[in-house]
Amino acid sequence: MIDRILSLLVALSLALLVWLYARSRDQEILDNVTLPVQVSLAEGQAEHYSLEVNGAGQAVVSFSGPSDRIRELRGEIQRNELHVEVVLTVPEEHRNESRYSDTVHIDASQVPAPPGVTPIVSEGRNRISVTVRRMVTRPLPVRFDALQEETSGPVVLDPAVVLVTGPQEVLDHIRAIPTMPSELPMRPANAPPGSTAVGRVALVQELEGRPVRSEPSKVTVKAPPQLRKEYVLPDVPIHFLCQADFTLRPEFFNDRDGRVTLHVIGPIQDEAPKVYAFLDLTHGRFESGSNHEPLQIQFLQKDFQLIDDQLRVVTFKLDPADFVPKGFSSSPP
């Protein structure tokens, strides 16, 4: 009787060994796979905190399972479809802190392996260092950051104060939010020089290297009119503007007729503004003898204009000539 029992136990043991051997031959191991880890804040906390992953967000995992499942797993890894998602909840004791650091531990239950595959997390290579910053919203005045040009007066910003959302540790000591470095807005070409220039400028999206957002994200910039000064330009020479094939020789009856005094207003500067006074003989029909044409003025600097629009008609004479004498200009300098 005892012999039969022993024989039965030996048979069962041998059967178990055969099953384990067959089972082991059907298993495969995939070692040291680096998986990306995506850490996010719990629902309801994302708008109150910002999360920063320090270093590489990765975990090293090995896998054991049937060959067909391991082949399926390899395909997911090659297609970058396998990653670990972790939701972090800010603990109650840290919720009022402006910043705190934490370490997220990845365990096997968080690895989305195919059915039948067992993930094995490498201890020491499953830790993700994160920094959590508390977000606050503060009203801040806007400061215009001029790129180059010096302003001739205070720049008006509308709105002058915006709501800025960002890390508390940054906004606690920031006194104003600047615009993006910008040129002052330009007046339209046909606008009076004394009019205000208006433009739109975006606010910065980072402060001290940390992202912030503003409401609104852009402000209206109003540049004041430039300070003006009157200039008297005596004895400005009058030139003749002629075509290259003009067959008549223009001359003034005397030296006094060939010069004009101009009264000009424009931006304040040390030097007198540069102008070009001329008579345009490129259009119309002209005959020898006495002629009359309106004086035209070209300013070689912007934002200058004549006072009281004092242009006048100039008298000159045209003599027959086979050539245009030297010194006559065909175009403004």
Rank of each mutant, 00 (worst) to 15 (best):
M1D: 08
I5S: 08
L6S: 04
L8M: 12
L8E: 01
L9W: 10
A11Q: 12
L12E: 04
S13V: 03
L16V: 14
R25C: 03
D26C: 07
Q27G: 01
E28N: 06
E28F: 06
N32D: 11
V33D: 06
E43F: 08
G44N: 12
Q45V: 15
H48N: 15
L51P: 05
G55N: 09
S62R: 09
S64Y: 00
S64L: 06
S64D: 02
P66F: 01
D68Q: 11
R71C: 00
L73R: 03
L73I: 08
V86F: 10
V87E: 12
T89N: 09
E93R: 10
E93G: 08
H94L: 08
R95C: 06
R99Q: 10
Y100P: 14
V104C: 03
D107N: 15
A108I: 13
A113S: 14
G116N: 09
T118R: 12
P119N: 04
N126V: 06
V130Q: 00
V130L: 03
T131Q: 15
R133I: 01
R134N: 10
F144W: 07
F144D: 03
A146W: 02
L147C: 04
E149S: 14
E149V: 14
G153L: 05
P154N: 11
V156G: 01
L157M: 12
D158T: 04
A160N: 10
A160K: 04
V162G: 09
V162R: 13
V164W: 01
T165K: 15
Q168N: 09
V170Q: 01
L171K: 09
H173G: 00
I174A: 07
A176L: 07
A176M: 05
L184F: 05
L184N: 02
N190Q: 12
A191C: 11
V198D: 07
V198N: 02
R200G: 05
V201Y: 01
V201W: 00
L203W: 02
V204H: 05
Q205W: 02
E206H: 12
G209M: 04
V212N: 02
R213D: 10
P216E: 00
S217R: 13
V221I: 15
A223G: 08
A223D: 08
P224C: 10
P225N: 11
R228H: 04
V232W: 00
V232I: 14
H239R: 14
F240T: 06
L241E: 00
D245I: 03
T247G: 14
L248K: 06
E251L: 08
N254K: 06
D255F: 03
R256T: 07
D257P: 00
D257K: 10
D257M: 10
V260G: 02
T261G: 00
L262N: 01
I268R: 06
D270Q: 14
P273H: 02
Y276R: 07
F278W: 10
D280R: 11
L281Y: 12
R285A: 09
S288V: 08
N291S: 14
Q296K: 15
Q298N: 07
L300F: 05
Q301R: 11
K302W: 06
D303G: 01
L306E: 00
L306I: 00
I307G: 01
Q310M: 11
Q310F: 05
Q310G: 09
L311Q: 13
R312W: 01
F316C: 12
F316T: 03
K317M: 05
L318Q: 09
P320E: 12
A321H: 05
P325W: 11
K326G: 11
K326M: 09
S331A: 13
